[in-house]
Design a protein around this nucleic acid. Structure first.
Lengths: 202, 202
DNA sequence: TGATTACTACTTACCGGTAGGTAGGTTTTT
DNA sequence: AAAAACCTACCTACCGGTAAGTAGTAATCA
């Protein structure tokens, strides 16, 4: 048995490569479209190694998402501590996300595909937590902005949809058309949107 | 052989039910996650009937998307003829889309999932046409608005991302959380955004 | 007009291939 | 030596797809 499921200890070579290969293939082909054969082939190990570290294909999937969830939490904690105006903080959020994307592109694509792709056919997993965490963060930033009088009072829920929808769509656009993932576009769009959100001085 | 592929003639019972069942299952489980067995089971026919009307699982998939493409074209032609201010026309666009969603929910979910879901694992098909058609329509509406001085000059490309990203995100939100698909939310968000887009009178 | 032919729309029964998963032995590390 | 890390060889279940045959009906022909 793998050492107490190795939740936080060092990744062995094989285990880490399986996580990486699984992330890449799940992101590229979806869960159902990914074969165990393909994952172990890409990881350069044999099949039973996967079943040794993760009890099943679904287990590998869960392990990948669990790790991603921890990463997202860390990222958001870090962002929520940043000072600045509401717009500044949203821009920091965007930039951090884009940095994360640059560092772990496959992982971000995977989450994105899970959130926006077909709902069934994957092992039971609350993928919506990723969404809810982002929503909560955006709402909190906006509410603090309202308290300081920086932005107009609006349904925080709807502002969050605007801010996140914009970013997700840019992300999707970047990776659908395999061009350059311009990190400035969401910023420009956000500024554009903010001209309607920011409290206008009389 | 089925009469000249029946592109436009009457749908037999079996053929129509296969299209419907395929749409529902592809939308729910994705292409790879959908089995031919499942489709024919839902359609209430036997397996070779699928291969009789469509040459393969991929053929059924293509037939569904081809039909959807024609429907989208018709819808957009109809919308582009509508008069009104830029905001009005965008609102009409939103409402038409939401009406289409109410009428063919599975079909819209399928397209949405294909556009935003994992890229590989489906038969070769230019799913991006759905995207491009919407983009072109929004850009045209906006450009006409610019010409009439109704809206500020901005990259039409970026405005389209704003307008479509907003709607897609609302759509996604509606169907991810299985609640009521409030057709007014995208309208409210659009108005919110327009306060920054509309040319402000001096 | 009745018999024959021909076609559409299906059915039952079945492939070959491959999916996820495992039994059990072997090497490597501690 | 004992535990951990891995391999070869294999199993069962089910996948997409097909061969071959048939009920029902429309067209053809003597």
């Amino acid at each position: 048995m793998p050492k107490e499921d190795r939740q936080s200890s060092f990744e062995t070579d094989a285990r880490g490569r399986l996580l990486e290969a699984g992330t890449a293939l799940f992101a590229e082909r979806g869960y159902a479209g990914t074969t165990v054969q393909g994952v172990v082939g890409r990881a350069g190990v044999t099949k039973p190694v996967l079943y040794y570290y993760f009890e099943s294909k679904a287990g590998l999937f869960r392990a990948i998402l669990d790790r991603a969830g921890r990463m997202q939490e860390d990222l958001l904690v870090h962002i929520m501590e940043m000072p600045g105006s509401t717009l500044d903080r949203f821009l920091i959020l965007y930039r951090s996300i884009y940095e994360g994307m640059a560092e772990h592109p496959d992982l971000f694509r995977l989450i994105h595909n899970l959130l926006f792709g077909p709902p069934a056919g994957i092992p039971p997993y609350d993928v919506m937590v990723f969404h809810r965490r982002m929503f909560a963060a955006v709402q909190r930033i906006y509410n603090e902005g309202v308290a300081r009088g920086e932005v107009v009072e609006a349904e925080p829920d709807e502002v969050a949809m605007l801010v996140l929808g914009l970013m997700d769509f840019c992300f999707h656009h970047d990776q659908a058309l395999g061009g350059v993932p311009d990190p400035c576009r969401p910023e420009r769009l956000l500024r554009l949107t903010f001209q309607g959100l920011a409290a206008r001085p009389r």
